[in-house]
Each structure stands twice: as structure tokens, then as C-alpha cells.
Design a protein around this nucleic acid. Structure first.
Lengths: 356, 356
DNA sequence: TTGAAAGCGCTAACAT
DNA sequence: ATGTTAGCGCTTTCAA
């Protein structure tokens, strides 16, 4: 019976021969403690396998934690809308634990906006920040400011090698490209003409997209699938209609068996072109469970989607931050999500489930 | 500033001109209260918009909740081992919140065992139960007992229409079969000879397996894929070696392009046969990320696995129960997990990620 | 550098 | 029928 009793700070204190305050100090690394006392406490902690009681902890410290979430405006882009919904979920979930989450949106295409918003966040003076570092240089600058102020941050969606965050949450892009290739190859068999389509917006995300393409191409070479012909097309016009016209033009001039698009928006734009051209037999592999993509998958235009799970990424990010703030629980440096394959037959199961 | 302050019971009590105990009594409808006092409290409650602080509530009532988890013995089956590991994770996670989870294992193949174990659970007198209702009739009987005692229960893995649980956690089996068919068809193209293999153990799970097969077959008919020939083979011998011998025999006598197996164990047994026979070119679709299945996927014998996520199911089940007991949060009646498709290229991303 | 003690909001045993 | 009060486990003054 007694073995089931939870170890309290008081128990640890008694074992270590100190007061609860001292134990609390070593647990949270606050105040001054003698090495001797610290050693005794650490030993007692170890011996008892003490686990803090979050409930008592949040109740005791009447502290309110403030987290800033910084991401592209969800109203302007369906992909980011899903991240936003994850933030919202997390906001509600942690409200009872005295965690306040404030969202800050920037314009995806406007570097100035990113800068302005990061200023706002610094003024807000949060205890920690979750952000999608879309703008490379501006992000680095912001990271500098945060570090200076000792504000921990978690990044998601896009990784920046020099970012040095508490944690990065996202996917293995190279492998993601390989999965896309595997799907196309499974569908096409042993040969075919494949187009890797790049839409203008990808310039913002150059590295992101390049990694995926690298994985995509490597799949064919590493599997000796030499009868596939793979070409890349970059559409640089910053305009949906122009992109679609150009793509349509390309498609009318050559035989294409499969298309791989590395972004969620590019996916449904491409699908729209294929749909209008009546080319449902072209194997199309793209990204994410956006409304438009779902539509074109139901329509039989898109064959496979790789799910980047923006919503879950956001939720996970907040969870990492909360656990870090409340318990000093260190999140993994990299949390790479599974590369989920969505098809016509399993798509509903993804939409119904609120699995987060 | 003050407007953000949470209303406490104490505030309500003061406003109503009574004590906190009286407020507590009307909040929880316990003890005796005069109509007059009740009215005053109700009014104050209304006026202040009081929201209880669940955290303080669970801390205050030092109640220990007991949850019984009932599932097939994890030591005897790798699939259930994963469920077991989910229970274990949840046990650790909730220990600090005064939730005690006791596991009860029954023998998958022995109906008597199920009955005995359910008796044990009733003796244990838990606050709630999580169970995998493998044995149909025995389960129904058990549900009756639980209801009689007002013990809420959540079921997972296997659904029973008449169960009427707090929540069912699992997958859409019919759709799961369709996904398997889709994968095989994608791989095979427009025609082929397909075997639906049933291993002996499936008799226990007749409904489970039948649903999957129904979905599997329906996929071909609803897509007018009439050039596929689909045959079912039931191996009724309760013995691994015998099953493999029989299957090998079948394979040697006919041309088989694809095989669908509806259980996790059947999957690696079949893979083993194909591997020994050197038939890696047969498209094999099966279930779950078991150690043996992972091995045969790396070996190139298994093409696709559908992930039922037994571990996550178990974790989710406990979470539902805890939230219900502690916070009176009502779980969804049905929580159907996504039908995750595992391939050679994305399998690692599933193994690495600790996404639960 | 340490410890005692007063909360945090709620529950429940004990008075009255 | 109602109120008082001592916890729950942790945090955080304040004193020593």
C-alpha cells in the first residue's frame, strides 16, 4: 500500500535532512544553495524517484505564464489556418493551468511585417515564444533578441540550422521527398515522365523545397529506376493565374505521367489545372490536407498527399513550451513527425479523427 | 486588472452571505441546505459567473482514482505488447495525479480466462475500466455487471455494437480493408490474382476480420476493377508451422500477385513464407508495426502495413477515463483513429517519432 | 545559505 | 442546516 504513496517534496526534504524550501531551490535552480545541501537533495531525489505534482505546482505558484505564438496570418492561407487552429486548441487546453497564449500573425510575403510583429512580441515580453521562422534573415535577428532577453523559443514547420532553439518540430524533408517518389513509382510501375513542379511562392522556402526534391530524385537513382524521366519546372511568376496558364501550356506539349509538387498551395493549383485539362490519369502527389486538396483528392485528381500535420505541430510546440516552463522538462532538440500518406481511401479517417 | 481575477468559492460565499461550505454543498448537491441559502448561493453563482478551478478541486479532494485495464496478456503477443506499453506509459504519466491503473490480463484464446479476469476486476472495484472486449458474449455479460455497479468503461480495439461504453477507440475496419485494397491495386495496376489469407487465430476475431475483408472486396467492385481475381483462404489449423506449410503449398500451385492479411500475426507468418519461397515480387499488405513485420518490410517482402496504433489506442483510452473522472470531461462516443499507411520509405519516420 | 509559515482554491471532517 | 478549519503539494515571502 505504502509503496503507492506519492513522494512529496516533504518526503525528499526529510530524507535529505533539509527543509522543503531547500528542495524546492534545487528543483528549480533558484536562490543560493550550498554544494553540500544540493548533493544531499539530489541524492534523495534520485533515491525516491521524485516526480513533481503539476497540479499542486500551478496552484501553489499563482504565476501566469505568457507564451507568444508567431505564425503567418491564418486568415490568408489554409495551411497556416491549421496551425492557427492548433494554437487555439492549446490555448484552451492550458488555460486552466494559468498559461496565457497570445497569437501574433505576420504576412507570409512581407518581410517588413515579420520584423514589425517580432518587435511587438518583444514588447509583449512573453515567457517564451513559439514561431514558424519563414523569413530567414529576419528570424535570425529575432532569435538574437530573444536570446539576449533569455526568452526560450521553439520553432516549427521550417528549420533554420543556425536557429539554436529549444526544439524544432517538423518533418524530415529529404525523406518526405522519397516518400512522394515511392508513391508515384508505385502507381506508375517501372517507367514514366515525371514533372517536379515549383510554384513561385516556394522561393520563400527555397531550402524546404530543394530538400524534398533531392529526396524525390534520389529515390529513383537509389532504386535503379532508370526508366523514369524526371524534369523540374520552376514557375516564377508571382500570380496564380499566370502559373496555371504556364503549367497548362507545358502539359499540352508533352506526355506527363506523374507530377510531384512540394508545397500545399502548389498542390491544389496543379490539381486545378489537371482537372480543367481533364487529365485525371496523371499521378499527382502533393502536400497537406487543405480544403482544396481534399476536394481534388475526392475528385480523383490528386492521388497522394503527404501530411505535414501543421495543427499537430503547433499543439506539440505549445506543449513543449508549457512543459519546459512549468517543469523544466527539456523537449527533444528535433521532433520529426511521421510522414503520413493520405489516399482516397484513408482520407476520411484523417478528417474525422481529432487525433492530435 | 481586477476583472481578470478568477472568482473563487470564497467570493461567491461572501456575496451570498454564507460560508464556503454552503457554496460547496450547492455546487455538488451534497448534504442538506435550506431553500433560502440555496437560492442566495445560486444567485451569487449566477451573478459572478463562477467557474470551478478543477486543479484546486483535485488537489483538495485527495481522492485516489482506480482504473482497471483489461487486455490480452502482452507477454504472449507482440500486438498486445504494444497496447500494454501504452497502458504502462499512461500509468506512469498519471501516477502523480493520484490515478492508479491496475492491469488485468486474460488469455486471448481462452474464454474462461476472460470470465475469470472480469470477476477479478469486479472484486478490485475500480472507479472505471478500460478494456479490449475480444470475447463477445463474455464482454456483454461483463458490461452488464459494470453498469449495475455504475462503473463507467471505455472499450478499445474491438467494437461491440451493444456495448454502450463511455467511448470506443479503434479504427473503421471496413475502410481499413478498402485501404489495403487500394494499396494492392496501386501496386498491381489493373489486374492480378489476389489472395485474402486468414490465419486460424482470426476465428476469435471473426467480425473484425470479416469487416476488413468486406471493405477489401468492395474496393474492387466499387471501382470496377473486374480484372482482379480475389480468393479467400482460411487456414484453420491452430498451429504456426502447419499454417505456413499449407500456405506454401497453395503458393506453389498457382500464380499469386498480391496477398492481403487482416491480422498482424498473420502478416509476418505470411511474409516468412514468401521470404523463404523467394517470392518478394508478390505484393503483400498486412497490419501493424510489429518487430517481425518491420523486419520483413526492410527485407522488401512486405509492401504496405496498415498501422492500428495499439499503443496510442491504449494511451488514449486511459486519458479519456482520467479526464472523465477528474474533470467530468465527456469523451467522444467514437474515436476512430486514422488509417495510417506504412511503407518502406516512411517506416523510419514512424519508428523514430514518439508521437503518441 | 537555510527554514518556518502563509498562501493558492477546493474538499471534507468536525463542530455547532 | 451551517460554519470552521485543517489539509492537498507546492511556491514564496520573510526572518534568521
Amino acid at each position: 500500500m505504502d509503496q503507492f504513496k506519492n513522494i512529496r517534496i516533504k518526503d525528499v526534504a526529510e530524507l535529505a535532512g533539509v527543509s522543503v524550501a531547500t528542495v524546492d531551490r534545487v528543483l528549480h535552480e533558484r536562490g543560493k544553495i550550498s554544494e553540500k545541501a544540493k548533493a544531499k537533495v539530489l541524492e534523495a531525489l534520485e533515491k525516491t524517484g521524485y516526480k513533481p505534482n503539476l497540479i499542486a505546482s500551478t496552484l501553489g505558484s499563482n504565476k501566469v505564464y505568457r507564451i507568444a505564438a508567431m505564425l503567418p496570418d491564418p486568415a490568408l492561407d489554409d495551411y497556416w489556418n491549421q496551425s492557427g487552429s492548433g494554437i487555439f486548441k492549446a490555448t484552451e487546453e492550458w488555460a486552466q493551468y494559468n498559461v496565457r497564449i497570445e497569437s501574433f500573425y505576420f504576412n507570409l510575403y512581407d518581410k517588413k511585417s515579420f520584423k514589425q510583429v517580432s518587435k511587438k512580441i518583444l514588447d509583449f515580453n512573453p515567457d517564451s515564444v513559439l514561431l514558424a521562422p519563414i523569413q530567414y534573415h529576419e528570424s535570425l535577428e529575432f532569435f538574437g533578441d530573444l536570446k539576449e532577453r533569455n526568452i526560450p523559443y521553439v520553432i516549427f514547420n521550417t528549420n533554420i540550422p543556425e536557429a539554436d532553439p529549444l526544439s524544432f518540430i517538423g518533418q524530415d524533408l529529404y525523406q518526405s521527398g522519397r516518400v512522394g517518389a515511392e508513391m508515384i513509382a508505385t502507381k506508375l510501375g517501372t517507367k514514366g515522365n515525371i514533372l517536379v513542379v515549383h510554384v513561385y511562392e516556394e522561393k520563400l522556402n527555397a531550402m524546404h523545397v530543394k530538400e524534398k526534391e533531392k529526396g524525390f530524385r534520389d529515390y529513383f537513382t537509389s532504386n535503379n529506376l532508370t526508366d523514369f524521366n524526371i524534369e523540374s519546372y520552376e514557375f516564377t511568376d508571382f500570380n496564380d493565374a499566370a502559373f496555371m496558364r504556364e503549367l497548362q501550356d507545358v502539359l499540352s506539349k508533352r506526355t506527363i505521367d506523374g507530377i510531384f509538387v512540394a508545397t500545399s498551395k502548389g498542390t491544389h493549383l496543379t490539381a486545378q489545372v489537371l482537372d480543367k485539362a481533364g487529365k485525371k490519369n496523371v499521378a499527382l502527389v502533393g502536400y497537406d490536407l487543405l480544403k482544396d486538396n481534399i476536394h481534388y483528392m475526392y475528385e480523383g485528381v490528386i492521388n497522394f498527399l503527404i501530411h505535414q500535420n501543421p495543427r499537430k505541430q503547433a499543439v506539440r510546440g505549445i506543449n513543449f513550451l508549457v512543459n519546459y516552463l512549468l517543469f523544466k522538462k527539456q523537449p527533444p532538440v528535433n521532433d520529426l513527425f511521421p510522414l503520413e500518406i493520405i489516399t482516397r481511401e484513408n482520407i476520411k479517417s484523417y478528417l474525422h479523427s481529432d487525433s492530435i
